[in-house]
Amino acid sequence: MQIHKFGKNITNANGAGDAAGNAVTRAKQKEQAESQGRGDRNKPVEESFQESLQKSMHMERAEHLNRTGHMESGLGTENREETEKDKESRTINGNVKGAEKGWYADIAGRGGSVVSHAEQGIGKAEGCVSGAGRTGERPAVKEVEVRRISYGECDKVEINVLEGYTLKAKLEGGPGGGIYVEMKDEEGRFSACLFEGAGLQKDSRSAMERIAYAVVHDGEEI
């Protein structure tokens, strides 16, 4: 019963700051000292040892929470863990859509014009670079209708289960022709683009552009 109360106090201290928790702890310690002074010999030795062990564990935990600064932030335990987990998944796995947005900015920086398209047909392309008027290093990409080609028909396939997408790339019209790239995202939506060989970058932020590059430069790793 005493242990339960003690634990409860420490839990309360999470939200209200350590002052209240410490006050209660001091009161408990005082009470214990008094009871010992009164000559309370009924309590078995093992039990009191276990109790003190429990208390020291609770104290350690409270100190740890204080050090990490979660008490000041006022976050509950559940929220804090969710935040850490979310952060972890964001950092490690990345975000395909985020990467694609960055890619458009990157292409615009290289001189390509970015055209955003509305939802069309089966899938929705996030945006494409207009191929009109391209020169030199400008990559030429245009959004095309999704054809749902099979893996067998493709020159290259990339399956990324963790990030949730698949890419299919096929060279069209022989060398110097376009590269048809089809993407299926984690929700099962399809989008397709036709890339022109010139200006494609190996280390592009777009997975679609990277696979198109790999098809043109066959034998190299994506």
């Binding site: 290259k156 399956i159 289960v161 990030e163």
Partner: peptide, 10 residues
Amino acid sequence: YRYASSYGHI
């Protein structure tokens, strides 16, 4: 079919 794995290599 030939494909690239999730780890990014063919």
